[in-house]
């Protein structure tokens, strides 16, 4: 059985020392090992940006796509081979600015993949511009007077878009993050995991210390019930979405693939490509 080591590939990440993304990388590796997966069975699809490089830093089938399109690529992979574990990962700019359209529709569609947003509330690779997760008033190169746009409320948006698995974690809490990723992968449907992953170079506001001060663990809230969507929404509102843990899970709704007509038990990649003569003649007859 594969161990954490088997998911390491000896490639040195080009992230800055102290970057939150290292913990996301480690947590994916730990979760996959703990779930008993083999590197050959994992497809890790990533977007563009610092975080997008993650598919090259895990020993697995990695696909580093185009900016914002991590989710359509990942959904295409899963549709083709349902036996693969598909994890998509990218930054908040990738998923919530240029790729926002795909994020909402992937949530709604509920294909069985896990999407990890590495949320640093800034554009790091392009050297410090505002992101859709930057808070209003946030001063960056592109918002010298402070951002006048409110940040995207991702967790509330996910809930209202019909998400079946919504969780949030913090990159310095590897244990919690690993556990959340495991739960996300096990979830039958689309699992959305937002990870506060501080940018130590360009975000001097939302730092490790800031998160430690401001984040509330859902496990500390008495009687919190992640199957109660109303409670989930209320709790997010009460805490300005600064909570960690499993926020909401719908275990009843079936995943997209379970509902597709004609979709078989065997992966689509193994489907017969040749059409027999009789079937062909039948199709031709429909036009005569």
């Amino acid at each position: 059985m594969a161990t954490v080591k088997d998911f390491r590939n000896n490639v040195k990440p080009n992230w800055c020392p102290g970057c939150g993304d290292f913990s996301v990388q480690a947590s994916i590796q730990r979760a996959c090992a703990s779930l008993g997966l083999e590197p050959d069975d994992l497809a890790l699809i990533s977007g563009i940006g610092c975080s997008g490089r993650i598919s090259g830093y895990v020993n697995a089938y990695g696909f580093h796509g185009t900016h914002g399109r991590v989710l359509p690529i990942a959904q295409g992979v899963k549709m083709a081979n349902k036996d693969l574990t598909v994890i998509a990962a990218g930054g908040d700019g990738d998923g919530l600015a240029i790729g926002m359209g795909h994020t909402i529709h992937a949530i709604r569609r509920n294909i069985d993949i896990t999407y990890i947003i590495m949320d640093n509330q800034i554009y790091g690779l392009t050297k410090g511009q505002t992101s859709p997760r930057s808070e209003s008033g946030f001063v960056t190169k592109s918002t010298p007077e402070g951002s006048i746009e409110p940040s995207v409320n991702l967790m509330e948006m996910a809930l209202s878009s019909g998400a079946t698995f919504v969780a949030q974690s913090f990159s310095s809490d590897i244990k919690d993050l690993t556990s959340i990723i495991e739960q996300g992968v096990k979830h039958k449907g689309f699992s959305l995991i937002n990870v506060f992953s501080p940018c130590v170079t360009y975000n001097k506001v939302n730092t490790y210390d800031w998160f430690k001060e401001n984040l509330v663990k859902l496990s500390s809230i008495e009687d919190y019930d992640p199957s109660d969507r109303g409670m989930a929404m209320k709790t997010l509102m009460e805490h300005d979405s600064l909570v960690t843990g499993l926020i909401y899970q719908d275990t009843v709704r079936k995943s997209y693939q379970e509902m597709v007509k004609g979709y078989k038990e065997e992966p689509l990649k193994d489907a017969e490509l040749n059409m027999d003569r009789e079937k062909f003649n039948e199709l031709v007859q429909q036009f005569i």
Binding site: A43, I45, F63, G65, T66, G68, R69, L71, P72, I73, A74, Q75, G76, V77, K78, M79, A80, N81, L84, G101, H102, H105, L268, K269, A271
Partner: peptide, 15 residues
């Protein structure tokens, strides 16, 4: 954009 990239993902995975 989703249409093309989804088809790319699927081709990559052998369909």
């Amino acid at each position: 954009m989703a249409a093309a990239t989804m088809a790319i993902g699927s081709n990559y995975a052998g369909v």
